[in-house]
Design a protein around this nucleic acid. Structure first.
Length: 138
DNA sequence: CGATTTTGACCGGCGC
DNA sequence: GCGCCGGTCAAAATCG
């Protein structure tokens, strides 16, 4: 999220192509992920909407932590994955730019918040649970 | 110092 | 059975 920070060290880990014995095995076997993956959310609430904005994405007042970036073939633009960083709140947000209209961004919310937004305290406005949508077609 | 970001690699499912 | 795609995580680096 740093547009001005374009100075990236090109000399990163170059000797990692092979198979390091004592090197950090990193992703050896992560049971945590396996267990989590096992969960088949049948009734997952998804709310997606398209908005015209020049910014990367809109901030609902929640704190989003980017946990991944992927480039889809359908779109020359990368897809960003965000996760709500809050205690017990595992809401995920997917932000992708329109292929034809770069000015448009598609924001997809996945899951529901377990806590009110930090901004809600400031605004003190009631938030109806009309965000629950079992949308099957994005 | 802590939280967050960034990139690459891996996993899991599905298609052929 | 293998390949492809999409999604997630983890370590390192950076910012405040």
């Amino acid at each position: 999220m740093r547009p001005e920070n374009k100075n990236l060290s090109k000399n990163m880990t170059n000797s990692f192509d092979g198979f390091s014995s004592s090197a950090p095995s990193t992703r050896n076997i992560k049971p945590s992920r396996r267990e989590l993956k096992k969960y088949k959310v049948e009734e997952e609430y998804r709310f997606a909407f398209r908005t015209k904005t020049d910014l990367e994405f809109m901030d609902d007042g929640y704190k989003w932590r980017k946990y991944g970036k992927k480039m889809v073939k359908n779109s020359p633009n990368p897809r960003n994955y965000f996760k709500c960083s809050s205690g017990g709140c595992n809401v995920k947000k997917r932000v992708e730019r329109e292929r034809e209209d770069p000015s448009y961004v598609i924001t997809t919310y996945q899951g529901m918040h377990n806590h009110e937004s930090p901004n809600c305290v400031l605004y003190c406005s009631p938030q109806p649970s009309s965000l629950s949508y079992t949308s099957s077609s994005i």
